[in-house]
Nucleic acid binder design. Structure first.
Lengths: 187, 187
DNA sequence: GTAGTTTTTTAACATTTGTAAAAATAAGTT
DNA sequence: AACTTATTTTTACAAATGTTAAAAAACTAC
């Protein structure tokens, strides 16, 4: 998905404001398996994913725990850096070759202080992010690992081609053995 | 906590903008056990909790599952109504006598379209909400029920006086029996 | 195609958690 | 105080999940 379209899908923007944001966005191309947001660092950019798949993960006792997968059209926010300007604990890397746009957080903050439409766009961005994370929390509170697995498959059928099951298990919050059992259930 | 202070704690506001928001806020007093945000309804207000304790919960197969507890100084957002103007699935009620302020979502949206400072205030509100929910999701992905219980006790030591353990168990995502076992662990 | 590596599944067993019911405790009422 | 009701803990057993290790399958590279 094109950046322009991705920005407008958050909320409508007058042409001039849209241009202001496009002006502070730079396209980058990354190969597979590149870490572009790293833990314990104050990240200077948010990203728009145009093409490819990324994953957001953390380390828990030296093991990777996957928090989310990202698909084209999504904006990737290193939350703590974006909101408080502090180091993040998440790591984001590419699962495939990717085309992204990086947008300077600092310059975006300046636009927030100048333009009403962009400030409201930023509000919408945060609101949609809230809904997304809440949805994910609800999945954990209300659904079984099996349901979460099937929901994920439906949401992202091509995921299995790009990520090994051991990682998907951490996303679902179960061991790999349990995921194997889930997969063996029906078929 | 006073409404004025609560609003400013989200992000700074010029006096005139602060007044604009105060103007659309109405104080209400509610007795214990009153539902003031109900499921499947499009709520017209967000709330600021000045005094008392509330809880946010849902129904899962005819059983209450608690999503969050709210303490003075917090803003309570019926997410779907606030963000999309659609019905919410959460229910919010008072666990004690409460003093709240209700703020019209519609009027607030109008202020967002008029004032840059208020639009940025609304952005900050959403951003902080994102962090709060993410924190909660992380608790579920990274911590055991026992750790979550002790964290909750630390965060809200007076909670046990106001809510029965069966409900706290649903908040933690475990059965009441498991919670009893957790409580029996150390002591 | 074969040898070597990685990933996934399976098996066996230990641990945790859930369910249902009973016992113990606490709270409320007359 | 005695009775009733609500809440919490405990018990016994069943079901689900984790751990470790081994087997099977899939993937790489030569």
């Amino acid at each position: 998905m094109e950046l322009k379209q991705g920005l407008l899908q958050i909320s409508p923007l007058p042409e001039s404001d849209l241009k202001s944001i496009l002006k502070i966005a730079d396209q980058i191309q990354l190969d597979k398996d590149i870490i572009f947001i790293d833990e314990n660092k104050t990240n200077k950019y948010i990203y728009f994913l145009q093409k490819g798949i990324c994953r957001i993960y953390y380390y828990k006792e030296h093991k990777e725990v996957i928090l989310d997968f990202c698909f084209p059209g999504q904006i990737i926010l290193p939350l703590n850096s974006y909101i408080h300007g502090t180091p993040t604990y998440e790591i984001v890397d590419t699962l495939t070759d990717c085309i992204l746009y990086k947008i300077s957080i600092q310059k975006l903050q300046e636009l927030y202080k100048e333009s009403l439409a962009i400030a409201n766009w930023g509000r919408k961005l945060a609101e949609l992010e809230t809904l997304k994370i809440e949805e994910r929390l609800m999945q954990h509170l209300f659904k079984t690992a099996s349901e979460r697995y099937h929901d994920l498959l439906q949401k992202a059928p091509l995921l299995l081609q790009h990520i090994k099951l051991g990682y998907i298990a951490t996303y679902l919050g179960v061991s790999q053995v349990t995921l194997s059992r889930i997969r063996a259930e029906v078929k």
